[in-house]
Design a protein around this nucleic acid. Sequence first.
DNA 1: CGTAGAAGTTGCCGTTACGGCAAGGTCAAC
DNA 2: GTTGACCTTGCCGTAACGGCAACTTCTACG
Lengths: 252, 252
Amino acid sequence: MAWSIAEVARMSGVTSRTLRHYDAIGLLPPASIGGNGYRYYEQPQLLRLQQILVLRELGLGLPAIAEVLDQQTDEVEALRDHHRRLLAERDRLDTLVGTVARTIAELQHRKGSQMPKINRPENLFEGFDPGKHDSEAEQRWPDEWAQSQQFVSSLTPADNQRMQQELTDQLVRMAELMVAGKPVDDPAVQAEVDTHYQGVARFWTPDATAFKALGQSYVDEPQWHGVYEQIAAGLAAYQRDAMAVYADTKLS
Amino acid sequence: MAWSIAEVARMSGVTSRTLRHYDAIGLLPPASIGGNGYRYYEQPQLLRLQQILVLRELGLGLPAIAEVLDQQTDEVEALRDHHRRLLAERDRLDTLVGTVARTIAELQHRKGSQMPKINRPENLFEGFDPGKHDSEAEQRWPDEWAQSQQFVSSLTPADNQRMQQELTDQLVRMAELMVAGKPVDDPAVQAEVDTHYQGVARFWTPDATAFKALGQSYVDEPQWHGVYEQIAAGLAAYQRDAMAVYADTKLS
DNA sequence: CGTAGAAGTTGCCGTTACGGCAAGGTCAAC
DNA sequence: GTTGACCTTGCCGTAACGGCAACTTCTACG
């Protein structure tokens, strides 16, 4: 009784592609090949296939399986050899697992303690006097300055509280982008600048030059600079650069 | 300062072939390419290469490394992912190691129609009468025999208990070596025989011929033979052969 | 200034055990 | 005769390069 390749595949659970492969490497030649080139398998081939699959389950390589089944190598010997390699490989993975785990722990430790730290102080705007800054803005854009002052005076303490909260959120998000290494022209960073711009626009509407000057003031004005640097080192300059890009691409 | 590919290879310990590969897959493009097609690297590339090698040491794939270094993926996230895969693979190998070991044991069982099982009976020396054996030794080495008997009579029951414990340990270790397929001239086996020799030397000091005869007696004398075979089938003959090798190499 | 030798380049094959696909021939049934 | 299932060979791809071949370029030396 001769079986076709698909029948053997169904009976054994392997694919016909695999059977062709085993034929190609000489591991399991069919019992006969028809005049049409078809492969036909019989009982001995099925037995051999089962033996192949058992050894394959153990992770033995196909050349090693062939040697064992062709009696060129003692089966126990081959398996002991294989066992040693498995042990070595498992031990290697074992130490690797430990190394990777320690690396993860170290990275998290470094991130949370030493390197680019992101703070979120509660009293960020404590002692922040609105009149003590923006002196340059007051001189260069007097109309807008007056408009802005009028808006500020209309705010309730609760309004102030909420806006400070919003701003702190924005700063922290920006700091995260900076720590993540995003360049200032990254879309995510620019989206954050846009949020900032919308916030500023509630007070007054800066053009490209004014917006860049505002960014520069975050670095120059000690009060603003202190606020930014309290969040994360280098954030003031990062914010200024991001705002400059925004001014150039969206405001001109 | 620009370095050629071979200079970078020497500095970093990788091959130039690897650097070309990293260029080909876009992982580490050179800083510039000369009109002659030569690759030239500079400081930032060296830094990136070091980062690549660190992550490669952890077993991370090159595409994953590229994602991490290009800030497309969080490093900790990638490593956690990698850690999970490593754990799964290690566990797979772990079960495979057990499966292969059991298969080897089963094959040996079938092959010798005897189980390579190692027993550790508590009553190994129960009913063991020192006077009922070593009859040949008594005749061939009467002086040493008398000396040995004198030493035996000086032992307390606690001494006897301890020495039986020691001997059982030795036998079990020897059985493990046998089951592991070690040949009798394997260093580990010979080290075990040496321990055995030191133990015997507390009673008397056999030469090569006497030590071989002692080993043979473990096979011939029913009481000793029973002790060895209770530990593992074939252990008596294995011990004898190992002792013969030891006598030939160390005692003559 | 010509040439040898070192060093650079691209490109292709091989590694493991197949998976997937394409082009084309064959078989069985209607 | 046609259709659809089944078969064939053959090539590409996988991970991370190693190795080799064929060819060009740089550098030092007599």
